[in-house]
Write a protein that binds this DNA or RNA. Sequence first.
DNA 1: TACCAGGAGAAAA
DNA 2: TTTTCTCATGGT
Length: 224
Amino acid sequence: MRLAPAALETVFAALSAAYGAQGWWPARTPFEVMVGAVLTQRTAWRNVEIALLNLANAGVLEAPALRCLPLAELEALVRPAGFYRQKAARLRRLCDWLARHGGFDGAAGLDDAGLRASLLDINGVGPETADAILLYAFRRRTFVVDAYARRIFARLGLIRGDESYEALRSALLQAGDGDTARQGEYHALLVAHAKVACRTRPRCQSCALAAACPQGSAVERAGH
DNA sequence: TACCAGGAGAAAA
DNA sequence: TTTTCTCATGGT
């Protein structure tokens, strides 16, 4: 599939004007990015924040400390983020992976494709989690195709919405010529927009993309 | 009260 | 190979 670069640019410009600079990802360290990426799987970010605060207060928001923590204690700390048994095990495997690769700096020695493949090899790290980690922790160029991106681009009529993850990622990468910082900003703007306006039940009256969106005009025509 | 939230992997068909 | 099921808490 193909996407028109101009369409992506229009969306970026409108969202950028509406929401301003996002400065993502909300984390202080690359490791915190990685932990947040796992914890936010199918989970609202506010619940992730509670779990992250628990980890920080326990002094285990760094890989070596978290790796040594008994699993039951880790489960208790990440419980507010939901799916806590799975996520504790996934965080543990992520720490094991870091240790195997000589820490963050060691892993950063891998090239883009090698790093992505290696991350995807971790049980519990799928394509979206891997891309979030690649983009925001390792600053590699990729596109995070999350539920928000899928929903917004589908409502705009730019995609069908049921395409495979890889098909969308490659189309979005090809259409966007931005550098890593811009890719990160793009995804952050999509998240902001999905939370404010393009929610599950869209609030089209306050939508910065309404002019370009079939959904928005449909709502307008219906008199909402 | 029911629904929803930035997935991923295993099991079943 | 594709679809369905499971994992779970907390806010609206």
